[in-house]
């Protein structure tokens, strides 16, 4: 299930972002994930890799797929998974993140999976706990496990990254998914094109190595991968865009725009999709869409990450 030929590699205690990884480390996680995917698709989903390990998901923001896929990943591998949500814990009573982290540490937690609305919160937690910390999305900073599952999906379908044109369209400014994907895909050798209304494009983003397209058409034209991002309704109240109708017309992607891309383009979206806003229903459900496969790959990638990070960030043939 796990490729035997992989040599040992060190990742450090925590997974805080893609920024900390190099191309070789990313590839390595994708290799392990391909082994794990076999397990996800098996009739009896059980392996002993996480036996005796405890995993806690600490979510300060809502999530369905990320949280669920981490919990299932842990359970498929025989780990103990528990979750804390803001409303039911002492977080609501004003306990600090550091105090919450130390409490979990004392309960013998091996991995804390954290989602937080503040950029940098996972690092603050990681600096103050013995447990490994995996960032499941922090503010507008990073969402590394999403980027890894996206990279895995592309890798599986395209066999590699070198020279691929990837278009990311939508609210780049507020998107941690966009940032992590930019870091991952540029490191892996893809050319990343960004499209957004100027109010939703963050300053200096071109310094990451991504290319700011003049419009969504330029980004999508000839692309191997097109990634839509969720437009959040609260952004409209901030006068970032005048409204959904205009956004869908000038920045959304439908059949016509997608036809500008290569014939075998992959259509991706981190979910949940606003149908008819950033992507039309026709293409979400169309034959170029891999949005549902992304979800399955999310479980495989998170299994790989739980495996690596319950072993002190080490993995390899040390029997």
């Amino acid at each position: 299930m796990i490729p035997r030929e992989l040599k040992q590699m060190h990742f450090g205690k925590d997974l805080l972002g893609i920024k900390q990884l190099d191309a070789e480390q990313i590839q390595y996680i994708l290799e392990i994930a391909s082994g794990m995917k076999v397990l996800v698709q098996a009739p009896n989903k059980k392996s002993p890799h996480l036996q005796g390990k405890s995993i806690i998901t600490l979510f300060y923001e809502n999530s369905t797929r990320t949280r669920m896929s981490f919990e299932l990943a842990a359970k498929y591998m025989g780990g103990t998974a528990a979750n804390i949500s803001v409303s039911t814990s002492s977080v609501a009573k004003g306990e600090t993140l550091i105090d919450t982290g130390r409490t979990l540490d004392m309960m013998g937690t091996d991995i804390i999976i954290i989602r937080h609305s503040c950029s940098g919160a996972p690092k603050l937690l990681a600096d103050n706990v013995k447990a490994a910390v995996i960032n499941a999305g922090d503010g507008m900073n990073e969402h590394p496990t999403q980027a890894l599952l996206d990279a895995y999906t592309i890798y599986e379908k395209k066999g590699g990254f070198e020279g691929l044109k990837v278009a990311i369209a939508g609210d780049i400014r507020h998107s941690r998914v966009a940032r992590s994907n930019i870091y991952a895909l540029t490191k892996l050798g893809a050319k990343v094109y960004l499209a957004a209304p100027p109010t939703l494009m963050p300053p200096g983003i071109e310094r990451t190595g991504a290319i700011v397209a003049r419009g969504v058409d330029e980004a999508v034209e000839g692309a191997d991968v097109v990634m839509g991002l969720r437009i959040q309704s609260e952004r409209q109240q901030g006068a970032m865009i005048p409204g959904i109708r205009e956004y869908a017309r000038f920045h959304g992607i439908g059949e016509e725009r997608l036809a500008l891309a290569k014939k075998d383009v992959l259509l991706m979206h981190p979910g949940p999709v606003n149908r008819g806003t950033e992507l039309t229903s026709a293409i979400v459900d169309g034959d170029r869409s891999v949005i549902n496969e992304q979800v399955m790959n999310g479980v495989a990638v998170r299994m790989a990450l739980l495996y690596v990070f319950t072993r002190g960030g080490r993995y390899g043939n040390v029997d």
Partner: peptide, 13 residues
């Protein structure tokens, strides 16, 4: 400050 570092850290500038 608003700029590349704020973009890179995901903080409002």
């Amino acid at each position: 400050n608003d700029g590349f570092v704020s973009t890179s850290l995901g903080l409002k500038g």
